[in-house]
Structures are given as structure tokens and as C-alpha cells.
């Protein structure tokens, strides 16, 4: 079996879950006959029929509302937001209904919301955002953001099986750019567990999603300068793997947090706070963050390049940290 793309891995994971469990069904805009805006669900309507692959009106609130109702009735809906940016239309359904039903009435809401997110694809302010932090702040939700085909497949399967509402942030830039050979056997990546994508002794980089790859490239450059970075890929953002972060910090004593979401109010601030609360005495340098700048995502390609974190920005921060 050859290497498969990140988008293929999501597709495969969904298909496996639908074959495994009849209660799993998909709903979203143009996911059926058209196969999805990015073709994640291409061929699904043919295999599973229009009752399990439902084309919906352009109404995110309705998509999530239907999903919540179906989940309460014992089904396992997987809702697709065509772009993560559009989820704001369903914000109340997500944060006040899906997130709080179990707390309020003790009922399980086993649903997955797929959120194609991220920039670097010149999509402009409404098709490029990384809005995971909106939900990171909402107890009752789970939020994941895979960076590799392996994790993408393993996490979509865990999300479908989870008894809680899970927001699954899949990065559009990675869809067809990242390939990986996957093992034949079933892949399950537990929610809440991070993954060390590179081991190193000098600096810990805490990151997730597309920035894992940017960080890996930067770490490669730094390795040539004798500085070994350890890359903690969170994979799950809520809950995040605190133990893994702290273990790595205790080893390297220096931390850089990298995310593609904008800096202010991004999850990097929370991770930084946890590190300084729980590992203050292990820090040999200030915790640093690299993120997008605090503006809407620019449509202009050169401006978007300026806006996004990139290898050079990460390398500069790492050099600064190493020299501190």
C-alpha cells in the first residue's frame, strides 16, 4: 500500500467507522452528490446511500441542531462545516446546547463536527481562520487538530466513537501536501494524548496542526547549528496533554509555542500559563510564542505570507531562545 494523503486518511477513517457502525451518518453542505467541497466524502453517497450521507441546506445552525437531536436519539452524526469559519452561524448550538446537555440533563451527545480550517491557501478572511480557541474556552467540548495522515485517521475514528461532542479541526493546507504510509491494522489515536514528533534536549516546541510541519523544518535547521528541538504535537487541544508538555519542559527547560491561530487569546497563552504555574522552577528562559499576527487573515498572498507563522519566524525565535 502506498503513501496516502492527509485528506485520504480522513476519508478512510470516516468510511471505516460508517462500515463498522450503522448509527454513524454524515451531514453537511454538498457532501453527498458533489462529494464535499474538498472531496473528503467522494463516493460516500454511492456506498452508504442518501440516508447516511445527507446534503443539507446552507444553514450551519440547522446542521448542528439536527446533529444534536440525532445524537440524543442514539445516532452518531458527523457534521461537516464546509469551512470552519462558518461554524459561527451554529455557535449557540455548539457552545450552549451540544456542550452543556450532558452537564444539564445527563444525556450523552456523541457527535463530531468536522471543521476544515487554516490558511496558506489564499482563501481570505472567511475561508482561512483557525478558530479552535473559541471552543477551547468551552467546557463540555473536545477539540482535536491532527497534523499527519496517521493522526488524522486515528483521531477521526476516536472522535466518532467518543460519547461527547468533538470538534475535529482538519487543516486544509495539509490535505494534499502531507503523505504518509499507514499500517494495515486499525489506527486509533486516543483523544487527549500528544505525540513527540521529534526528540531533542535543548528546546521544547509545543505545537499542533500545520505548524507541526513548519516546526519540524525549523528544528532541522537548528539541528545543523547544534540545537536539538523536541516537538510536542498536541494532536488534542481540549483536553491537551499537560503531562507530556511538562515532561518535555523538565527536560529542555526552554519552550516555544507555535500555532497558526492569531496570538492574542490563542491557546498558546493557556499553555504558557500552565507551564509557568506548574514548572516555573524548570524554566531557564522566558516562554515564547509564535503565532499569526492579530489581524483578519489577509486575502493578498504576500500579506498572508507576512501574517502566517513560517519557518524563518520559528527559526529566529528558536535562536533567540537558545542564546538567552
Amino acid at each position: 500500500m502506498g503513501a496516502i494523503t492527509y485528506i485520504q486518511a480522513i476519508s478512510d477513517g470516516l468510511r471505516e467507522e460508517m462500515r463498522r457502525d450503522d448509527s454513524v451518518f454524515l451531514l453537511g453542505e454538498d457532501i453527498g452528490i458533489y462529494g464535499g467541497a474538498f472531496k473528503v466524502t467522494k463516493g460516500f453517497i454511492e456506498e452508504f446511500g442518501p440516508e447516511r450521507v445527507i446534503d443539507t441546506p446552507l444553514a450551519e445552525s440547522a446542521i448542528i441542531g439536527v446533529s444534536i437531536g440525532a445524537a440524543l436519539m442514539g445516532l452518531r452524526p458527523v457534521a461537516e462545516m464546509q469551512f470552519a469559519d462558518f461554524i459561527s452561524c451554529a455557535f449557540n448550538q455548539v457552545v450552549n446546547n451540544a456542550a452543556k446537555i450532558h452537564y444539564r440533563w445527563g444525556a450523552s451527545v456523541p457527535m463530531t463536527i468536522r471543521c476544515p480550517s487554516g490558511g496558506g491557501v489564499h482563501g481570505g478572511p472567511y475561508h482561512s481562520q483557525n478558530n479552535e480557541a473559541w471552543f477551547f474556552h468551552t467546557p463540555g467540548l473536545k477539540v482535536v487538530a491532527p497534523s499527519t495522515p496517521y493522526d488524522a485517521k486515528g483521531l477521526i475514528k476516536s472522535a466518532v466513537r467518543d460519547p461527547n461532542p468533538v470538534l475535529y479541526f482538519e487543516h486544509k493546507f495539509l490535505y494534499r501536501r502531507i503523505k504518509e504510509e499507514l499500517p494495515e491494522e486499525e489506527i486509533i489515536v486516543p483523544i487527549g494524548e500528544g505525540d513527540i514528533k521529534r526528540e531533542g534536549r535543548d528546546i521544547t516546541i509545543v505545537t499542533y496542526g500545520s505548524m507541526v510541519h513548519v516546526s519540524l523544518e525549523a528544528a532541522e535547521t537548528l539541528a545543523n547549528e547544534g540545537i536539538e528541538c523536541e516537538i510536542v504535537d498536541l494532536r488534542s487541544i481540549l483536553p491537551f496533554d499537560k503531562a507530556m508538555i511538562l515532561d518535555s519542559v523538565r527536560k529542555t527547560n526552554r519552550v516555544l509555542i507555535v500555532h497558526e491561530d492569531v496570538l492574542t487569546g490563542g491557546i498558546g497563552g493557556e499553555i504558557s500559563a500552565v507551564i509557568s504555574e506548574e514548572a516555573f522552577e524548570q524554566l531557564d528562559a522566558p516562554i515564547m510564542r509564535i503565532a499569526s499576527i492579530d489581524t483578519p487573515v489577509p486575502y493578498s498572498p504576500p500579506l498572508e505570507e507576512f501574517f502566517l507563522p513560517n519557518k524563518e519566524k520559528v527559526i529566529n525565535a528558536l535562536r533567540k531562545l537558545a542564546a538567552y
Binding site: 527547560n253 516555573f280 522552577e281 524548570q282 524554566l283 531557564d284 528562559a285
Partner: peptide, 17 residues
């Protein structure tokens, strides 16, 4: 007025611990 050098130097939390 004592210790002309001690107070000036910064030590990271790690170095202190």
C-alpha cells in the same frame, strides 16, 4: 548600599532551583 554585584544579576527560575 551593600552587595554591588549580587542584586544586579538575573538568575532564571531553573538556575535558582
Amino acid at each position: 548600599a551593600k552587595k554591588p554585584t549580587t542584586g544586579k544579576r538575573f538568575y532564571s527560575p531553573l538556575v535558582r532551583s
